[in-house]
Design a protein around this nucleic acid. Sequence first.
DNA 1: GATGAATGAGTATTCATTCAT
DNA 2: CATGAATGAATACTCATTCAT
Lengths: 197, 197, 197, 197
Amino acid sequence: MARRSSEDKKERILDAATVEIARHGYHQTTVAVIARRAGVADGTIYLYFKNKEEILVSLFERALGRFIAKGQEQLEGMTGAADKLRAIVDLHLTLVGQDRDLAIITQVELRHSLHFLEELSRAQVGGYLAIIAQVIAEGVASGQFRADLDPVLAGKAVFGVLDEMATDWVLSRRNTRLEAKAPEVTELVLGMVASGG
Amino acid sequence: MARRSSEDKKERILDAATVEIARHGYHQTTVAVIARRAGVADGTIYLYFKNKEEILVSLFERALGRFIAKGQEQLEGMTGAADKLRAIVDLHLTLVGQDRDLAIITQVELRHSLHFLEELSRAQVGGYLAIIAQVIAEGVASGQFRADLDPVLAGKAVFGVLDEMATDWVLSRRNTRLEAKAPEVTELVLGMVASGG
Amino acid sequence: MARRSSEDKKERILDAATVEIARHGYHQTTVAVIARRAGVADGTIYLYFKNKEEILVSLFERALGRFIAKGQEQLEGMTGAADKLRAIVDLHLTLVGQDRDLAIITQVELRHSLHFLEELSRAQVGGYLAIIAQVIAEGVASGQFRADLDPVLAGKAVFGVLDEMATDWVLSRRNTRLEAKAPEVTELVLGMVASGG
Amino acid sequence: MARRSSEDKKERILDAATVEIARHGYHQTTVAVIARRAGVADGTIYLYFKNKEEILVSLFERALGRFIAKGQEQLEGMTGAADKLRAIVDLHLTLVGQDRDLAIITQVELRHSLHFLEELSRAQVGGYLAIIAQVIAEGVASGQFRADLDPVLAGKAVFGVLDEMATDWVLSRRNTRLEAKAPEVTELVLGMVASGG
DNA sequence: GATGAATGAGTATTCATTCAT
DNA sequence: CATGAATGAATACTCATTCAT
């Protein structure tokens, strides 16, 4: 179970980093502060991460991994593009809305540099966009969605709507629940792609 | 004339900052490098800006000022919410697509911290969102748009779509023109709000 | 006179570095300590030197510059290889013996890495060795020195003797004067190269 | 047998250290790297050596031990100070020239600090210098060497010549053999001490 | 207004050493 | 004896900002 302890330590570091970075921002958060919250020595951080930036990347990868796992589980066995799109909207808002600290990181801190954003975009977000595009393509094929849609472009539009809702929620300090907007957002998104009123 | 020279110097600093920050990122860009490109001494920067961050804010304010001037000019005398929305889409993509360096800053560098983003959001972007919401409200009132729309929420959704298109364009290194997508994007946006097909 | 002040500051930094490095060794000497002794801020060091190692190099270059200036002045107008060699021995021991702190640096701290020593050797010490070899070649040509000498090899041998005397003086903590050994050392060195008794 | 294995392990560590330190320098060489090359765990190093510096010391002691063993063996039964001095020159150049990695360490890395050098000098090199001085004293007594010699000073001079030859060989990257210079160096050294032509 | 030399606070990262297993 | 994960002290260097000229 040495494995267990080691895994735990890495998890603890990521958890600590999530809280501190969300609270004070990536640049204002020192490695020492993360270490202290995680209950390890400064140097221990570097047994698990190559450098400070890799903590941020790992943070996101862990979150996205969970995100995608839930997504696949939920979309599985579902038929009908519209239903799938509804599920995506729901899932996106529900999962992002579940952890405000993490949301602050994904919606704000993760986007702090062009280089960084490019990498994320290519490697991680790209896969998510592809899934949405795929669902839209299905809808177009089945006639549920407008025939003249470009699935990739429409997919980005859908993502843009969801992403803006998430960012808006992060920036509004009110104690609303993000997922509460799912029905309305679903209507907007479906309006964007669905054929005939 | 002194005024003129002074204004010029401030402009030169902002221009220099735009290029350097877009090219190397806000944190990698030193005040000294901006000063050198602007052809002034380091200390001179501080005669025009309180600190480094204010350069970034001023950059955005100058850009948004021009943006809004063009917008009002264009929307003026226009009737019909759908037409206005078309114009907004067009304008947004055209103006953002006009200056890639500036776009990198508005789509990426400007979002580097929660605190910063909150301020921007409240003060600047808020005004822009209000305009979109207003147009949607008009459309709802006139029956052009769906009656059950929440104009504020729908406005954010529209902004989300436009913003994602802009970010996507910045991240794709291909030499496409952002405004080329205006027709398709307009269709998506109108689909989102327009009443029955 | 700004030049004057600037030069002074650089000199003060080098002087401070000489004392601290001689006293505590290169690695134990922090940039902060050098700055404090020089009466400048840490950052100021970097206005005059690219990095810590460049301080060490500059130290040596300044010393060697003075060394060579004195040497040329003294050898000038002198004829007779044996006399010149006497003068070299005298000068070497006198100059090294003049500043124990500096001597510690040239005899010990400067030799702390192969890479560093190679550079010094090639660029700086090489020139000095060439001068000695040249004097020996003169002596061979004039018949004062043994005909079968390889001037380059013999030059290195002479340098080896002088260098060992210097190092030995640095390591012995007694309050002897290095130059006091000049007569005896001269005899040894001349014995090495002079033709028949 | 346990003893044997234990001895082997210590030897392996010293061998590994020799290669790594010669190749990358003392400060650039981490204990972890030595351990890896020796095929032991980091902590194991500390079962055999008190700290990193002691590895360097042991390295030198092992080498000097072998050096002296060979020397005594060779000088034994030899009579005549001049012959003994010839043998010393020969031996010094031969043994140093046998292992370039070790030579890099003795000629460069070992001299990286005043404190360190003082210790070496007093404890180890001092013994070697005494042997040379003793041989010279013999020569003076027997009339082979100049009567006015100070054996200790002359011994240091001899050592200086040999040491410089060794350092020069280490710094020159050419593939020469150090011992090839023994005849010429012997001539120089004997010239330094021998009485009349 | 303009300059640019000087400041000095701030921090990621390394690595010799320890010690529980 | 051996391991290697964990420690945490230690430090060169950067750069936004100031202010005497």
